[in-house]
Design a protein around this nucleic acid. Structure first.
Lengths: 337, 337
DNA sequence: GTGAAAGCGCTAACAC
DNA sequence: GTGTTAGCGCTTTCAC
């Protein structure tokens, strides 16, 4: 039942090295030989034992993927993208969930490092020091984070934030509140940076609240504070929070978008489904997953650092949760100071 | 830099077999020797190379977990439960997503089988034949499915369905519509079975619609059909669909629960957050993940088939989306034929 | 209680 | 072009 390289070699009437070469260096073989070997291998259902191969090549054919929370709707897209790309390159993916715990991240990486050729670290909440530490243990690619010398996939959060705020400005809003996400989140810093740059240029008043956990419940909590600021528009760190804001406002009888406008980030599936549908910044999570795998594959192939950084664009999806600020009417000098 | 068994043996002044035994058969060693070896190993950060070990023991220390769709909120809980349990047993888990495609399942299993000691197959959409095929390739544990001879973790869907329907009966509803889930879903068959048994006993009229995809959009679609049946209560296959029903009903100005009651299955996080909050059957997905790993671990340890089947209870969570059917008033002979 | 030695299945020099 | 051979790092008889 067990079919190994010797069995294939025997049945094909060649040596084991020839069988090995048929898979790893086909060009070195006479086409006839190769064909015969492959045929026998196929008939027997032979596939090289990865563990044995790994023992000698020092590679595993596995890569790790670490995310803060599988239950956060932003990550399934990333996971799917990474998986499909990895599978295409004949890599298997170890997935790990850290439950948003930075300490768990490092422990996980340490445990994983021996069994994979490289690790994709998504939206890490770790300190820079720890990330560098991790980078010393294995080939590392980060997503949604930027650190000198570490290959990264970046989603243009700042750009998305700018789009959202410019949308508000165009709608005549003059006071906008931003609900900050997790304290250690690079994405949050980027979003804030984007917002501030636009606010500074436009004279719009930007009020910041938080940090909050990136969750529905936190959004409900934040809604009341946001309302209290007198702002006419709310920019939530992510869709989950924005949904919480929507729910709480509805509870309180505040009309969206008539009384107040709301946006989020991520464009999770639910954003399109809720009522009112949510205006939000779409983050190409699936593309990010694919890009991260590509980057890691490049690193592993020891190719010269062609591109160590991939930046993906974001796009504001305008839906029903944002509307002009009608008081004073938007036709009335919407941009004057 | 590379620390292997030889290095540890050298520094500890013993042979490599002794080092090996310090990890795998500590009892055979003199306590002093063992302590010294372990100390050196620890100081050097030595961990046995799993690939090399696997080569000789024939095991990998990995297990596979296959789910139809990571983006379906039911599965993250399962994934987390399985991961944490596996990690505790020093197993790593390969996660794969089939995108609800039965064909992908078998292909995935085939590819995975060589690299893992066993596979957990959750909510499989494959035919029985294919599942048996898969079971021939590796140690298999199924979740949410029941097949003779195959270890399984079962969530009591039928019982949950019964609870939900009895809840409706108690509330005075006489005509209830069930929105069927995927055609090949074992869970759906179970839920239907539970409903029918209660309906038959109680004389309640059970109307069935579908099958539908287990998604929000399908729920929106189904809402109109459900309304057309004249039923006063809707039982959706899962929460995602129920949420779709809620959204569509709201669009049409139908009040929930005043005009019509709605329930789902799963108790995804959002069920508690939407308005009105959703009455639904809680499925212990995280416990199911843990149980599946336990079962697989048992199989791998070749323990005698202690328990090849773990059944987990479900629980109806009554929230705001269900209310008495007020017309005729429930006090008025709620159970008479 | 400990060591020597034989592989697990494979790849990668090195011969021819 | 193809075969021979020496390990990769480890576990596991079999001696002692």
């Amino acid at each position: 039942m067990k079919v190994n390289i010797h069995e294939v070699a025997r049945q094909a009437g060649v040596s084991i090295s020839t069988v090995s070469r048929a898979f790893n260096a086909p060009d070195l073989l006479h086409p006839t030989t190769r064909a015969r070997v492959l045929e026998v291998a196929n008939a027997l259902g032979y596939q090289p034992n990865r563990a044995a191969r790994g023992l000698i090549t020092g590679t595993t054919g596995n890569m790790g993927l670490i995310v803060p929370d599988v239950a956060n709707p932003f990550f399934p897209g990333l996971i799917k993208g990474a998986q499909s790309r990895a599978r295409g390159a004949d890599y298997a993916v170890f997935l790990a969930d850290t439950d948003e715990d930075p300490a768990a991240e490092l422990a996980l990486i340490r445990a994983m490092a021996k069994q994979v050729d490289g690790i994709i670290l998504a939206s890490s909440r770790m300190s820079e020091l720890d990330v560098r530490d991790a980078a010393g243990m294995t080939s590392l690619v980060v997503v949604n984070r930027q650190m000198r010398g570490i290959p990264a996939v970046i989603l243009d959060s700042a750009g998305g934030a700018r789009q959202a705020l410019e949308h508000f400005i165009a709608l005549g809003h003059r006071r906008v509140v931003f609900l900050n996400g997790p304290r250690n989140s690079w994405s949050n810093r980027e979003r804030r940076r984007g917002l501030r740059s636009v606010a500074a240029k436009s004279g719009l008043e930007l009020v910041e609240l938080g940090p909050y956990a990136p969750r529905f419940e936190a959004g409900m909590l934040a809604a009341d504070s946001a309302l209290a600021t007198g702002a006419t528009a709310v920019l939530a760190y992510n869709d989950l929070m924005a949904l919480g804001v929507l729910a709480r406002l509805s509870d309180r009888g505040v009309q969206v978008p008539d009384d107040i406008s709301v946006t989020g980030f991520d464009d999770i599936p639910l954003a399109m489904m809720c009522t009112p549908s949510l205006t939000t910044v779409a983050m190409p999570s699936e593309a990010a997953g694919r890009a991260a795998v590509d980057l890691l594959l490049g690193v592993l192939a020891q190719r010269e650092p062609t591109r160590r950084r991939i930046e993906l664009p974001t796009q504001l999806m305008v839906r029903a949760s944002t509307a002009p600020f009608a008081f004073p009417p938007p036709s009335q000098s919407p941009r004057a100071t």
